[in-house]
Design a protein around this nucleic acid. Sequence first.
DNA 1: TGAATATATATCGTATAACGACATATATCA
DNA 2: TGATATATGTCGTTATACGATATATATTCA
Lengths: 135, 135
Amino acid sequence: MPRETLSDRDYATLAAFRLALRRFAAFSEAEAEAAGLAPQQHQALLAIKAAPWGHPPGIGEIAAQLLIRHNTAVGLVDRLSEAGLVRRAADPADRRRMRVVLTARAETVLRALSAAHLRELRAIRPNLLRLLDNL
Amino acid sequence: MPRETLSDRDYATLAAFRLALRRFAAFSEAEAEAAGLAPQQHQALLAIKAAPWGHPPGIGEIAAQLLIRHNTAVGLVDRLSEAGLVRRAADPADRRRMRVVLTARAETVLRALSAAHLRELRAIRPNLLRLLDNL
DNA sequence: TGAATATATATCGTATAACGACATATATCA
DNA sequence: TGATATATGTCGTTATACGATATATATTCA
C-alpha cells in the first residue's frame, strides 16, 4: 500500500468540490419543490425526456439512468403517475414492458425547471472549472 | 413568464451531467462503504479535515458545510464518535461549543479515500469539462 | 414444440437518515 | 441583571431506497 501523499490544498479542493455539488443539489431540490415535485421526480422526468434509446423508456431503463433499483423506479413512476406527470403505455411488441411517457403538464414543468438549471449551471461553471483545474 | 426555448441537446446535456454526478456519488459511496464508512461519514470527515475556520469545527460548522440541520449533524458526529473516527473536545473559551477532532484512524482512512477520489475526479474530468462546455 | 431459463415489472416489509419541534446550557447585550 | 441569542442535544415522525419475493411474458435450446 503506497503511502499516499496529499496536501492540505488537495483536501481543500476535494471539500470545496463536494460543497459545490451539495449546493447545486440543494438548488435543484429547492426548484423542484417550488414546482411541486419531489427532487427524484424531477430527475426522473429529465431522464425520461432525454432517454437515450430513441423510444420512451421502461421501468428498467429509468432505473439504469437514475442508478436506482428497478423496484425503487416502480414506486417513483407510481407517484409520478398519481401526480399526473407520466402515464404508463403498453408496449405492443413486448407485453412485459411498460413505456413511460411524459404528460403535457410534465413537459411544461420540466421546461421551466431545465431552463432554471441551465442558468444555475452557467452561473456556477467558473467555480467548477476552477476546482477541476486544481485537481 | 417567458416561453423558454430548450433544444433536445439542452435536455441531453442536463441529463448527462446529472448522470455523471450520480456516477461520481455512486463511486464515492462504494469507496466509503468499502472503507467501512457510511457515505455521510466520509463527507463529514472531509469537511472536518478541510474546515475553513483554522480550528476544529463545531457541530454547527459541520452542519453548514454539509448543508444539513444541526440536529442531523449531532447524530452524524455521534455515530462517528462511536466508530472511533472523531472525538468531541471541549472548547475552554466557549463551553457551549464542541470541537470535533479527527482520530488518527480517521486521518488514515480519509487519506486513502481522498487519494482514490482525486484519481476518480481526474478520470472523469474530461467528461465533466465537455459537458460544462455544452451548457 | 415444450421445458427451462431469463427478463420486466410489481408488491411488501424493513431500515436509515433527515427533519421539525422542542429542551438545555451558556454567552452576550441593553 | 434580565432578556435575548447561540450552540448543542433529544425525541418522534416521515420519506425513500432497499432486499426478498412474486408474477407474467419472452427467449433459448434439447
